[in-house]
Amino acid sequence: MKKSNVAMLTVFLALIPLTLFLGDKLPGKGYYITGVLIIIELSVPFFMAFEKRRPQARELVVLAVMIALAVIGRVAIPIPHFKAAFAIIMLTGIAFGPETGFIAGAITAFASNFFYGQGAYMPWQMMAYGAGGMLAGFVFIRNKIPKKPWIMAVIGFLSVVFWIGPLLDTSHIFIMMPEINISTVTASLASGFPVNVSQGICTALMMLLFGKPLLEKLDRVKMKYGMTEGENGV
């Protein structure tokens, strides 16, 4: 069994139940700490897999470019709740696969917070953005679904409204709400819904207009410099 798989299994079978068990005993808003710990435990196997793979210079730099573009997409567009970041993260996931998509999303959230200001919601952002990139990577894995702009737009819209957005909104439950029950959960998710729809429309628009050109550019770089053959293939 691969080492990253062992780490993943340990996390799921031992660490998370243990955290939930001990976290339940914490006083006050201990559930915030439990939530943060579980997000960290879920992300560490991904980061470990990335480190173990010893990514080559080419992969690192191209990934850095994509993340920087996503951060600019979040920082530079002045319309609130209308950011290009999700689309770029998802396109990175589509082009490089789910694992890299997760890394791209998580680092985008982390890096852009140095411009926005760090907040208590940072772990949730890293998780939600990463999960968005990962989902897009999974949907289009092995080219089973054609990478047509309108398909990407629909999937982009749906995954922002029903996957990334709700994941982000769960942070409100942990940070602002006095306790976790059905009414606080629905209140948090409902209040986030309009924002998610706006973000979803932006993502769909970006996918329609920018999806195909970006994938073509990435493919061109891959072909021209033989990125798929690794460092020695040049």
Binding site: F47, E51, A64, A68, V75, I107, A111, F115
Partner: peptide
């Protein structure tokens, strides 16, 4: 990951 982060900060 740290190198990636540093490169992102420089590229923005």
């Amino acid at each position: 990951l740290s190198l990636l982060l540093v490169m992102v900060f420089r590229m923005i």
